[in-house]
Amino acid sequence: ADDEVAKLLVDAYRKNDEDKLEEVKKRYNISDEQVKRLIRKVL
């Protein structure tokens, strides 16, 4: 599931889509710190 979330985050990140990032964060209840970590893992 982590990889799936990471893909969604990276996708939103690449598109610079703040709304999507927020949506994913809320849906999976993850912190900014986790977001950064997941994005770093993929990029």
Rank of each mutant, 00 (worst) to 15 (best):
D32I: 05
V10H: 07
E33R: 06
K7L: 11
A6E: 10
A1S: 12
K15G: 08
K41D: 12
Y28S: 01
E4D: 11
K7C: 12
L38E: 02
K36N: 09
E22T: 09
K25S: 03
E22N: 13
E4S: 09
L8P: 01
Y13C: 08
D3I: 11
V24P: 00
D19N: 12
N29C: 07
E33L: 06
K36H: 11
K15I: 09
R37T: 12
A1L: 15
V5E: 02
Y13V: 07
D17I: 03
L8T: 03
K7E: 09
L43I: 09
R14C: 15
D11F: 03
R40E: 15
R40F: 15
D3H: 11
D3G: 09
L38Q: 02
L8C: 06
I30F: 08
K20D: 03
D2M: 14
D2W: 15
D17H: 04
L8N: 02
L43D: 05
Y13I: 13
D3Y: 12
S31G: 04
L43H: 05
N16D: 07
K41N: 11
A1V: 15
L21G: 01
L21P: 00
I39C: 04
E33G: 06
K36Q: 13
V5P: 04
K7I: 10
D17Q: 06
K25Q: 07
K41L: 11
K15M: 12
E4P: 08
L8E: 08
E22V: 06
D17N: 06
E18M: 15
R27G: 02
V5Q: 02
A6V: 14
L43P: 03
D32T: 06
R27V: 07
D17A: 04
K26F: 07
A1F: 15
R40C: 12
L9S: 00
Q34I: 10
D17V: 03
V35P: 00
K7M: 12
L43A: 05
L38H: 03
Q34A: 09
N16L: 06
K20P: 01
K36A: 13
R14N: 10
D32R: 03
K26R: 12
K15T: 11
L38R: 01
I39W: 03
A1M: 15
L43S: 05
K41H: 12
L21F: 09
V5H: 03
A12Y: 08
K26N: 09
V42I: 14
D32M: 05
K20M: 14
K41S: 11
Y28W: 07
E4C: 11
L21N: 00
K20W: 10
E22M: 10
V24M: 10
L8G: 02
R27T: 09
R14S: 09
K15P: 01
A12Q: 01
E33K: 07
L21Q: 02
K41E: 12
N16Q: 10
R40H: 14
Y13F: 11
R40S: 14
R40M: 14
S31P: 04
A6N: 06
R37L: 13
K26G: 04
E23M: 09
D32F: 04
L8Y: 05
I39Y: 02
N29H: 08
E22D: 09
A12E: 01
D2P: 10
V35E: 03
E23L: 07
L9H: 00
K36G: 08
R37E: 15
E4Y: 14
V35L: 13
D19L: 13
K7Y: 11
K15N: 14
L38V: 06
K7A: 13
Q34P: 02
V10T: 07
L38A: 05
D2I: 12
N16H: 12
V10G: 04
K15V: 08
Y13T: 02
E18S: 14
K26V: 07
N29Y: 03
R14P: 01
L21D: 00
N29G: 13
D11L: 06
R37H: 12
R37G: 08
N16R: 12
D19T: 13
D11Q: 06
R14V: 13
L9M: 02
V24R: 00
D11I: 06
Y13N: 01
E33T: 05
D11S: 06
V10I: 14
Q34S: 06
Y13Q: 02
K36V: 11
A12F: 05
E4V: 11
V24T: 05
Y13D: 02
K25W: 02
V24C: 04
E22L: 11
K25E: 00
L9Y: 01
D3N: 09
D11R: 04
E23W: 12
V24S: 01
L43Q: 06
E4G: 06
A6W: 14
Y13M: 08
D17M: 05
N29K: 07
R27Q: 11
D2V: 11
E22P: 00
D17S: 04
E23K: 08
R37K: 13
D3V: 08
A6L: 14
V10S: 05
Q34H: 10
K20F: 11
A6G: 07
V5R: 02
D17F: 05
K15L: 13
E18R: 15
V35G: 03
E23G: 04
S31K: 03
K26E: 06
E22K: 10
Q34L: 08
Y28F: 11
A6C: 11
R40A: 14
K7P: 03
R37F: 11
L43M: 10
E33D: 10
E18K: 15
I30H: 00
N29A: 06
D2H: 12
E4Q: 09
R14W: 13
D32S: 07
V5T: 03
V42E: 10
L21Y: 04
V10E: 06
D19V: 14
K7N: 09
E4T: 09
Y13S: 02
D17W: 06
K36P: 03
R27D: 03
V35S: 06
R37I: 14
L38G: 01
V35W: 11
A1R: 10
N29T: 03
N16V: 03
A1K: 10
L38N: 01
N29M: 06
K25M: 10
V5D: 01
Y28K: 00
L38S: 02
Q34E: 15
V35D: 01
L43G: 04
K20Q: 10
